[in-house]
């Protein structure tokens, strides 16, 4: 059933007789044209990467960052309507800060995903608002070591276990993708935006659930996948922006940061070389990846 002319698509929060909210589906259309954004959950951290289409030569290269930090240990990237993404960043920061005032510790990635997800979902419920025109990828690292409570000044009881259980494992990488409907899942690898099909296909090849991919390899693969996903819109220039968050003994010490310039350049070189290799293969096999769109 098409939505056109039925009237069921004219207001948000209105179901069509077959149980669809067309405004949410239109919002998803906005995402389909956004720059490709991906996240890879690695063994010791998470990588985010985004294809920034250069819309004007007057834009400063390396400026206008698209990946935002939430608290200290989360990164957030949205594909779709950029200002909608910024609003979500602002909301996520408020949620993270409010968690800290309540619980005196950083918000776990699952809880942040839940709160942002709930927020997005609320915008599908009222006719006075429109849904968010973005799909958002949230990457974080929950501290695996026992972290101090905010404002803690002592070391606590030294004797016995003091209510703690020994040998329990906590924390680790977190990667979530939130859609305009408010639907969110945790992923090993997430992709959204224009080149998502290619990106997803590439992500699946990485065997991420096995937990073998290291963060450093993840950075290279992320760059390569963005380059691969860009193949379909080759006429446009783009810039690669990448960020990462590692374990507390890793390169970012549990914080979310932009990938350092040298490493970014290395990854881009790797990605370009891989693309050249692909071209050779394509000519050999006659190309097989153009069917997806």
């Amino acid at each position: 059933m098409t939505s056109i002319g039925t009237g069921y698509d004219l207001t948000n929060s209105t179901f069509s007789p077959d149980g669809r909210n067309f405004q949410v589906e239109y919002a998803s259309k906005a995402v389909e044209n956004g720059g490709t954004a991906i996240g890879i959950r690695c063994r010791n951290g998470v990588v985010l990467a985004v294809e920034k289409i250069i819309t004007s030569k007057l834009l400063k290269s390396g400026g206008n960052k698209r990946i935002a930090s939430i608290d200290r240990n989360f990164g957030m990237i949205s594909s779709g309507l950029v200002p909608d993404g910024r609003h979500l960043v602002s909301r996520a920061r408020d949620e993270a800060a409010s968690w800290r005032t309540s619980y005196k510790c950083p918000i776990p990635s699952s809880s942040l995903a839940f709160r942002v997800g709930s927020y997005v979902q609320a915008y599908t419920l009222y006719s006075s608002v429109r849904p968010f025109g973005v799909t958002t990828i949230l990457a974080g690292w929950d501290s695996e070591t026992e972290s101090r409570v905010d404002g803690q000044v002592g070391s606590g009881p030294k004797a016995a276990l003091a209510g703690k259980t020994k040998g329990t494992k906590a924390g680790g990488p977190g990667l979530y993708m939130i859609e305009p409907s408010g639907l969110y899942w945790g992923y090993y690898g997430a992709a959204t935006g224009k080149g998502r099909q290619t990106a997803k296909a590439e992500l699946e090849k990485l065997d991420l659930p096995s937990g073998n991919l290291s963060l450093e390899q993840g950075v290279k693969e992320a760059a390569r996948i963005i380059y691969a996903a860009h193949e379909d819109s080759k006429d446009k220039d783009f810039e690669l922006e990448m960020s990462w968050v590692s374990s507390s003994d890793g390169p970012t010490q549990g914080r979310h940061e932009q990938v350092p310039k040298e490493l970014l350049e290395q990854a881009e070189t790797f990605a370009k070389r891989a693309m050249e290799g692909d071209d050779d293969e394509d000519t050999a096999t006659g190309g097989g990846e153009t069917m997806e769109l």
Partner: peptide
């Protein structure tokens, strides 16, 4: 201390 922590987080945005 907590105020400074939140200040630090916000400054890094």
């Amino acid at each position: 201390d907590r105020l400074l922590l939140s200040l630090d987080i916000e400054e890094n945005y």
